[in-house]
Computed example of a mutant assay.
Amino acid sequence: MSDQTFSLFRFPETLAVVRLAPGAEIPDWAESSSIFSITATAEETSLVCAGRSVPKKARHEKPFTAFSVDGPLDFGMTGVLVAVLTPLAEEAISVFTISTFDTDWILVRTADADRAEEAWRRSGHTVAPAVPA
């Protein structure tokens, strides 16, 4: 178990994780929110976007709630994800993670968001509502 503790921010938007074909164009319905992510590989293109406009026919999972680790985080830091994911794993809370240049984002199913906050607090982390930019 890590002794590191972090501050996390909870974002209010409902998010979706969408799977598109490899090389797919980003659809017009893919709306930005607190986090908008496009990850493309030879096998697929994945989006994290606002969940409100994702068509039912699109292959997706939702609803998710996003938490970010207070950053920026130095690239030389180690154990950040271990520190924030271990309490969730111990509570059997599934995650979808994304890293950006400045920080790490943890998406949990919205139904598990309050449990995730409780698990983090018990582990010494702090969680606060995100302040809109």
Rank of each mutant, 00 (worst) to 15 (best):
S2E: 12
S2M: 09
D3N: 12
D3Y: 05
D3P: 05
T5K: 09
F6T: 02
S7Y: 00
S7W: 03
L8A: 02
F9Y: 13
F9S: 13
F9L: 13
R10D: 03
P12K: 11
E13Q: 15
T14Q: 15
T14K: 14
T14E: 15
L15E: 00
L15C: 06
L15W: 01
A16S: 15
V17H: 10
R19T: 11
L20G: 09
P22D: 09
P22N: 11
P22Y: 08
G23C: 10
A24H: 03
E25Y: 04
E25S: 15
I26V: 15
P27T: 08
D28I: 04
D28P: 04
W29D: 07
W29T: 08
A30E: 03
E31A: 14
S33K: 00
S33E: 07
S34R: 05
I35M: 11
F36R: 10
S37I: 06
S37N: 14
I38H: 03
A40Q: 14
T41V: 08
A42K: 09
A42P: 00
E43Q: 14
E43A: 12
E44G: 00
T45W: 01
L47N: 04
L47V: 05
V48Q: 03
C49Y: 00
C49L: 02
A50K: 10
G51Q: 06
R52C: 02
R52T: 09
S53M: 12
S53L: 14
V54A: 07
V54P: 02
V54L: 08
P55F: 06
P55T: 09
K56V: 12
H60Y: 04
H60W: 04
F64E: 01
F64A: 03
T65R: 04
A66W: 05
A66R: 04
S68K: 07
V69M: 00
D70S: 11
D70V: 06
G71P: 07
P72A: 09
L73T: 03
L73M: 12
D74H: 13
D74S: 12
G76M: 09
M77L: 15
T78H: 11
G79D: 11
V80L: 11
V80R: 04
L81A: 13
L81W: 07
A83G: 08
A83D: 01
A83Q: 01
V84C: 04
V84H: 02
V84I: 15
V84K: 00
L85W: 05
L85D: 05
P87A: 05
L88T: 05
E90I: 01
A92S: 13
A92N: 13
A92Q: 14
A92H: 15
F96C: 13
T97M: 10
T97Y: 04
T100A: 12
T103A: 12
W105T: 00
I106Q: 00
I106M: 07
L107F: 14
V108M: 07
V108I: 10
R109T: 03
R109P: 00
T110P: 01
D112I: 02
D112K: 12
A113Q: 07
D114W: 01
R115F: 02
R115I: 01
R115L: 14
R115K: 15
E117A: 14
A119V: 06
A119S: 14
A119Q: 04
W120H: 02
R121D: 09
R122F: 01
G124E: 05
G124Y: 03
H125L: 00
T126A: 12
V127T: 10
V127I: 13
P129S: 08
P129T: 10
P129A: 13
P129H: 08
A130T: 07
V131K: 14
V131P: 03
P132H: 10
